[in-house]
Design a protein around this nucleic acid. Structure first.
Lengths: 350, 350
DNA sequence: GTGTCCTACTAAACCGCTCTAGCGTTTGGG
DNA sequence: CCCAAACGCTAGAGCGGTTTAGTAGGACAC
């Protein structure tokens, strides 16, 4: 005999299939004595529900989907994603829900996967990341009427609930910290300009620069890659009037920038302060260790998982959820600007 | 009406459900004219197969499983896993097979998941990583008679096919390179001693040390974490007779080690050469950039995916597959040992 | 003309589970 | 004491596909 089915259990326990189903799913309709007996037989036969059979009959598929539209080879670079993934896992596996992961090339392909997986009943819901400024995915998901949770808000994501952190407030805390140290020329190596969070950070920097009376506060968009991070840093440091502090939107870029500074003989933090908008082991192990915005990405993933599970259980009832604002972890890469602040004498000071 | 089923298509096209099934799956039993008509109707109705319905009836579930037994929070640290994942994705998505990912705490839990997912028909096969010295997972999978591919060999994985690279040869290439530069005291910060590849690397170092007549060649086991990597490095560098070169089993540890050396005033590569057994962006962006063993982890993932798909299609026919031996990428962290080689004068030389 | 084979298709069983309708028995209220 | 309600359970109809057994009709050989 192959794997046992509820019919086998029913025969063994001397009851009907229906009774077995009730007993195994903890729902009323059987006496406690019968339930116990059925459970014991099921245990003895090492029975497990056949996930496909359960998913048929209109029930849940027991999986949720995460589709990421980025060049496949770049995913490995971002500690952020891996951390998020681990957190999602933790949140989902508590309820024995599986995660279906797919990396695609672009948003069109991503949307196609949303369509397909929904129609195929392959997943019960989706997690949406990398929210764009005008995001077409939102309305597709709304139209498909499939539960979904958006990572990154607030607002601008239609009827879908989101889990978000206050990027604006975080950027302000960085700028205030740098300004307090005496920095007046701050550069910002931003991420992809199409992303909403990139826009929010750029705007926050501009606003606070005006309020604090900074001499310069420029945001340069990049593609998050170490290559562009390094190139932009080189460009900035070669200018006659160079910034005394650079804020990087990802830790990979920050480390790459640190490498460029070292290579160009610009001392950190003596002549240049570096702040990373993302924290990970990476920021802590380089030398000097990077001052970075710490947030618990793992916990974020767990939170997203919980919101999604709630949205699947009771669509329409889940509200947006704000996670704690990332806090600045001061390490060794930031300090007062040198005496020749912003005059660009060529990197030999201190 | 909800989503269309084959019954809807059958009605619309004026044929039976069976005919529709034949037509949609490209199997004989319908005329070309009828097939074309059915396909067109299916297209018009935007029909997609219900994955659960298909998986019932004994067919494939269309997903494969990857279960990783490591502390959840550490996964994010290893670029290796993320790269592997991306490669797996690429290999699987070509055949529209999904990847079910799960991070568990220990091997016992991992085995339980193999059992569960197999009995639940949730996946069609597994990818096994982190092969241990005496690995109990192998026989569990053999007993479950589920297709599986092991990453890391050769040998010692029962009847399961494996995809592997020659760790031994790779380690030899590192040692030869360092010896040729003049190094006689080499330390090796290894990974978890329970892993087979850790053992192979340790043995390779010991063998070549003997053959090349090195003064010292010690392997210290770690847990792959940046913390242990840093601690062990600190310990090594504080010894009176310190090594002139350290080989790290992961890039994260190598970067952490570089940080410690910098902090202790030990110049790299002047007084200490550093080699990482794993390459990733990380190794290239720190300063000095790390000499590292490069292998195409993404391609490795693709290869594993292909082997697994083949094993699912035709169990028992898939052979072990060796991937290209990683090659050393020489960057800036290695050089000739200083004149005070191995005498440990306190890190002020050069 | 009859028997045989093939093609193109239909009808229905089946996969394993869920869920509803229904039925016999016990329990409680008036 | 009788009827109604509650309980504990059974039978069986789906869910959406796949697959097998069976059949009608035409081509062909003898």
């Amino acid at each position: 005999m192959g794997r046992p089915t509820i019919a086998d259990i029913a025969r063994q326990a001397g009851v009907s299939k229906g009774a077995v189903s009730f007993a195994l799913n903890g729902r009323p309709g059987v006496s406690e004595a019968t339930r116990a007996r059925i459970l014991q037989v099921a245990e003895e036969m090492n029975w497990r529900p056949h996930s496909a059979a359960r998913a048929l009959g209109g029930a849940r598929s027991g999986a949720v989907g995460l589709v990421i539209a980025r060049p496949a080879r770049t995913i490995g670079v971002e500690p952020f994603f891996a951390q998020l993934l681990s957190g999602l896992q933790a949140g989902l596996s508590a309820r024995a829900v599986a995660l279906q992961l797919l990396v695609v090339e672009d948003t069109a392909a991503e949307i196609e996967v949303y369509r397909r997986w929904t129609l195929e009943h392959r997943v019960d819901g989706f997690i949406v990341v990398d929210l764009k400024v005008r995001d077409e995915r939102i309305e597709v998901l709304e139209q498909l009427a499939v539960p979904a949770v958006v990572l990154g808000g607030p607002g601008q994501h239609g009827s879908l609930p989101s889990v978000w952190a206050d990027d604006r407030e975080a950027m302000l805390s960085i700028v205030h910290y740098l300004a307090a140290l005496g920095h007046r020329r701050i550069a910002h190596l931003a991420g992809l300009p199409a992303f909403r969070h990139t826009q929010r950070r750029i705007r926050a920097l501009r606003d606070s620069a005006r309020k604090l009376g900074l001499v310069e506060a420029v945001s340069l968009p990049t593609d998050f890659s170490d290559a562009e991070g390094a190139a932009a840093t080189r460009h900035l440091l070669a200018r006659p009037q160079r910034p005394t502090a650079i804020v990087y939107d990802s830790d990979v870029m920050a480390v790459a920038g640190l490498g460029v500074a070292t290579e160009m003989g610009v001392s950190v933090p003596g002549e240049l302060s570096i702040v990373s908008f993302d924290d990970s082991v990476l920021a802590g192990i380089v030398h000097p260790a990077l001052t970075a915005l710490s947030r618990d990405t793992f916990a974020l993933g767990e939170q997203v998982a919980h919101s999604l599970l709630a949205a699947i259980d009771a669509p329409g009832t889940v509200r947006d959820l704000q996670t704690p604002t990332p806090r600045l972890t001061v390490r060794e890469s930031t300090g007062r600007p040198g005496p020749d602040e912003g005059l660009g004498t060529g990197g030999k000071a201190v």
